[in-house]
Simulated assay, not measured.
Amino acid sequence: MALLDQRQMDCERLRGAGIRPTTQRLGVMRAIREGGRRHLTPESFHRELAESKIRMSLATVYNTLNHFADAGLLRRVGFGERIWFCTNTGEHYHFFDETTGRIEDVLGEQPQVLGVPEPPPGMEILGIDVVIRVGKAA
Protein backbone atom coordinates (compact mmCIF):
# COMPACT_ATOMS: atom_id res chain seq x y z
CA MET A 1 0.00 0.00 0.00
CA ALA A 2 1.35 3.42 -0.90
CA LEU A 3 2.51 5.63 1.93
CA LEU A 4 0.08 8.35 0.84
CA ASP A 5 -2.82 5.89 0.96
CA GLN A 6 -1.85 4.80 4.48
CA ARG A 7 -1.52 8.42 5.61
CA GLN A 8 -5.00 9.12 4.23
CA MET A 9 -6.37 6.07 6.08
CA ASP A 10 -4.74 7.32 9.31
CA CYS A 11 -6.31 10.77 8.74
CA GLU A 12 -9.72 9.17 8.24
CA ARG A 13 -9.31 6.98 11.32
CA LEU A 14 -8.46 10.00 13.47
CA ARG A 15 -11.31 12.06 12.05
CA GLY A 16 -13.68 9.13 12.58
CA ALA A 17 -12.65 9.13 16.24
CA GLY A 18 -13.29 12.87 16.49
CA ILE A 19 -9.59 13.79 16.52
CA ARG A 20 -8.11 16.46 14.27
CA PRO A 21 -5.22 14.87 12.32
CA THR A 22 -2.19 17.05 13.04
CA THR A 23 1.32 16.16 11.89
CA GLN A 24 2.27 15.00 15.40
CA ARG A 25 -0.88 12.90 15.85
CA LEU A 26 -0.35 11.29 12.45
CA GLY A 27 3.24 10.48 13.46
CA VAL A 28 1.98 8.87 16.67
CA MET A 29 -0.72 6.96 14.75
CA ARG A 30 1.84 5.68 12.22
CA ALA A 31 4.26 4.58 14.98
CA ILE A 32 1.44 2.75 16.77
CA ARG A 33 0.27 1.06 13.55
CA GLU A 34 3.76 0.07 12.42
CA GLY A 35 4.71 -1.26 15.86
CA GLY A 36 1.92 -3.84 15.88
CA ARG A 37 0.13 -5.11 18.95
CA ARG A 38 1.93 -4.13 22.11
CA HIS A 39 1.70 -2.28 25.40
CA LEU A 40 3.11 1.21 25.60
CA THR A 41 4.08 3.36 28.51
CA PRO A 42 4.34 7.05 27.71
CA GLU A 43 8.05 6.94 28.58
CA SER A 44 8.87 3.93 26.40
CA PHE A 45 6.80 5.28 23.53
CA HIS A 46 8.49 8.68 23.83
CA ARG A 47 11.87 6.92 23.40
CA GLU A 48 10.51 4.93 20.45
CA LEU A 49 9.30 8.11 18.76
CA ALA A 50 12.63 9.85 19.34
CA GLU A 51 14.47 6.88 17.78
CA SER A 52 12.15 7.24 14.76
CA LYS A 53 13.03 10.94 14.52
CA ILE A 54 9.57 12.02 15.68
CA ARG A 55 10.26 14.82 18.12
CA MET A 56 7.72 15.78 20.74
CA SER A 57 7.74 16.42 24.44
CA LEU A 58 6.90 13.69 26.92
CA ALA A 59 3.87 15.74 28.00
CA THR A 60 2.59 15.73 24.40
CA VAL A 61 3.07 11.96 24.23
CA TYR A 62 1.08 11.56 27.49
CA ASN A 63 -1.67 13.84 26.23
CA THR A 64 -1.85 12.17 22.80
CA LEU A 65 -1.99 8.64 24.21
CA ASN A 66 -4.71 9.67 26.64
CA HIS A 67 -6.62 11.45 23.87
CA PHE A 68 -6.39 8.33 21.67
CA ALA A 69 -7.56 6.15 24.57
CA ASP A 70 -10.49 8.47 25.29
CA ALA A 71 -11.47 8.14 21.60
CA GLY A 72 -11.19 4.32 21.67
CA LEU A 73 -8.06 4.08 19.51
CA LEU A 74 -6.05 2.63 22.42
CA ARG A 75 -7.04 0.86 25.60
CA ARG A 76 -5.77 1.89 29.02
CA VAL A 77 -4.58 -0.97 31.20
CA GLY A 78 -3.53 -0.09 34.68
CA PHE A 79 -3.32 -1.13 38.24
CA GLY A 80 -1.42 0.29 41.13
CA GLU A 81 0.44 3.34 39.91
CA ARG A 82 1.27 1.95 36.45
CA ILE A 83 -0.66 2.55 33.27
CA TRP A 84 -0.02 1.02 29.87
CA PHE A 85 -1.72 1.80 26.59
CA CYS A 86 -2.69 -1.38 24.77
CA THR A 87 -2.89 -1.20 20.98
CA ASN A 88 -5.33 -4.14 20.97
CA THR A 89 -8.66 -2.43 21.62
CA GLY A 90 -10.72 -5.63 21.50
CA GLU A 91 -11.99 -7.25 24.69
CA HIS A 92 -9.18 -9.28 26.24
CA TYR A 93 -7.29 -9.71 29.49
CA HIS A 94 -3.64 -9.46 30.49
CA PHE A 95 -0.76 -11.23 32.20
CA PHE A 96 1.54 -9.07 34.32
CA ASP A 97 5.01 -10.42 35.10
CA GLU A 98 5.87 -9.09 38.55
CA THR A 99 9.54 -9.97 38.04
CA THR A 100 10.10 -8.01 34.83
CA GLY A 101 7.22 -5.53 34.93
CA ARG A 102 6.13 -6.73 31.49
CA ILE A 103 2.47 -6.93 30.50
CA GLU A 104 1.11 -9.06 27.67
CA ASP A 105 -2.22 -10.13 26.26
CA VAL A 106 -3.89 -13.38 27.28
CA LEU A 107 -4.17 -15.11 23.92
CA GLY A 108 -6.98 -17.40 22.86
CA GLU A 109 -9.90 -18.16 25.13
CA GLN A 110 -10.37 -15.49 27.78
CA PRO A 111 -11.14 -16.17 31.45
CA GLN A 112 -14.82 -15.98 32.36
CA VAL A 113 -15.88 -13.54 35.04
CA LEU A 114 -18.84 -14.84 37.04
CA GLY A 115 -21.02 -13.17 39.64
CA VAL A 116 -20.49 -9.59 38.55
CA PRO A 117 -22.34 -7.40 41.07
CA GLU A 118 -24.87 -4.75 40.16
CA PRO A 119 -23.21 -1.34 39.90
CA PRO A 120 -24.11 1.40 42.37
CA PRO A 121 -27.27 3.40 41.64
CA GLY A 122 -26.88 5.70 38.67
CA MET A 123 -23.81 3.86 37.39
CA GLU A 124 -23.24 1.34 34.62
CA ILE A 125 -20.47 -1.19 34.08
CA LEU A 126 -18.26 -0.03 31.22
CA GLY A 127 -15.97 -3.03 31.17
CA ILE A 128 -14.10 -5.52 33.28
CA ASP A 129 -10.33 -5.69 33.35
CA VAL A 130 -8.59 -8.85 34.51
CA VAL A 131 -4.86 -8.80 35.16
CA ILE A 132 -3.30 -12.16 35.99
CA ARG A 133 -0.11 -11.62 37.98
CA VAL A 134 2.66 -14.10 37.19
CA GLY A 135 6.27 -14.67 38.19
CA LYS A 136 9.03 -17.19 37.63
CA ALA A 137 8.16 -20.66 38.85
CA ALA A 138 10.21 -21.81 41.83
Rank of each mutant, 00 (worst) to 15 (best):
I128Y: 05
I125M: 02
I125V: 10
S44K: 11
H67R: 15
G78A: 13
D70P: 03
G127K: 10
F79V: 01
L74R: 12
A31Q: 15
S44R: 12
G90H: 06
G72F: 04
E91R: 07
M56E: 13
L40M: 11
E34P: 08
I19P: 06
M1V: 00
R7S: 02
K53Y: 13
C86L: 15
E12C: 10
R25V: 07
G108I: 02
P21Q: 07
G115E: 06
V130E: 05
T64I: 13
Q8P: 00
P117Y: 03
A50K: 09
G115T: 00
G127I: 08
M123L: 09
G101L: 05
S44A: 14
R38I: 09
E104Q: 11
K53F: 14
A69G: 12
T87A: 09
M123C: 08
L74H: 14
I128V: 14
M29Y: 00
V106R: 08
W84P: 09
A137W: 11
C86V: 15
E104F: 01
Q110E: 05
G108K: 11
E43Y: 08
G108W: 07
E12L: 15
G115W: 02
G115Q: 04
G90P: 00
R55Q: 14
M56N: 13
L58Y: 14
I32H: 12
M1W: 00
G127H: 10
D97S: 05
M1E: 00
R47N: 00
E51H: 12
L73Q: 06
I132P: 02
T41N: 10
R20M: 02
D10T: 00
A31N: 09
Y62Q: 08
L26S: 01
T22Q: 13
L73N: 07
S57T: 14
I132D: 03
G16L: 04
G27P: 02
R30A: 11
L65H: 04
D97I: 05
L114K: 10
N66H: 12
H46D: 09
K136V: 09
R76L: 11
T100Q: 06
E48T: 14
R82Y: 07
H94R: 08
R30Y: 01
E81Y: 04
I19Y: 10
W84C: 12
F96S: 07
E98H: 08
R133W: 01
E81I: 01
I103V: 13
I132V: 12
H67W: 12
T23Q: 14
M29D: 02
V28G: 02
A50F: 03
E12T: 11
G135C: 14
G72P: 09
I128W: 03
R30N: 02
Q6D: 13
E34C: 13
P119M: 05
A138V: 10
E104T: 14
A31F: 12
V131F: 01
D5Q: 05
E124H: 04
G18F: 03
A71H: 03
D129F: 04
M29F: 01
M29G: 00
A31S: 15
T60S: 15
Q112L: 03
P120H: 01
L4I: 13
N88Y: 10
T87E: 12
G18P: 06
M1F: 00
I32F: 15
M1L: 00
P119E: 04
G27L: 02
G72C: 04
L14V: 08
G101A: 02
G122L: 02
R33W: 06
D70A: 10
V106Q: 10
G108L: 04
T64K: 01
R76A: 13
L40I: 08
A138D: 12
L114S: 07
